[in-house]
Amino acid sequence: MNNRRHFLVKSASALTMTFIVPSLLSSNAQAKKPLDQKVTDKKSWGMHIDVDKCVDGCTACVDACNEENGLTGFGRPETDSQWIRKIKIKDKTTEKITTMPMLCQHCENPPCCDVCPTGASFKRVDGIVMVNQHTCIGCRYCMMACPFKARSFVHETLTTQNTNAPRGKGCVESCNLCVNKIDHGSDTTACEDACSKAGHNAITFGDLKDSNSKVRLAIESNSPRRLRDDLNLKQKVFYSNI
């Protein structure tokens, strides 16, 4: 009886090792390009935001970002993470009121990366500024250094996470331009998709090095500016009609 049970267990294990495990491994290996390629500087990701097209009261971009990255709050707005937020501003001279999304500006010279003691905050060669969740020690110096208040600290235990956006209690995080989607071959972000779906098209994302990309065309047809240009951080997020 025992022998038969052992035989069945061993057979099942052998079958699992022979057929199921390799199929799981191969599904990983078959991921879309460029996931299996090194990130290069052939692309430079950036974003254009036309604030005239951004609609007051619409939070489609914020909702999409929260869903994409699994940012479920704890009902504590002062400590809950916000990777993208809506801001309403009034021009001091013209008194024009505009509403717009604020997110990590993906600086060419990012102060967060300069101050990070362990190099956990880093800029990829394609311009995406992000946090290595394995080496962030949670000192929050990057949050002190960011001129745009783009970063959040994970203040409490996370019970649910999206596999495409790993997060960690005690670490700092911010918008990474949906890096997981990009590395799987996409050229759009969740916020851009949502804005477009809502019919506003205020957000345009793409490769700044490609002269035919929609983001380049948007930048060239408008006269966008960078926020706090005086700091010479050369952000990759541009705003038009502020």
Partner: peptide, 22 residues
């Protein structure tokens, strides 16, 4: 007070020399 005090060893072994903190 660090968010991840258990990673002190990371702070002691992985340096970003541009950081005044480092």
């Amino acid at each position: 007070d660090l968010g991840r005090p258990d990673r002190l060893i990371v702070a002691m072994t992985t340096y970003n020399f541009k950081s005044i903190f480092a």
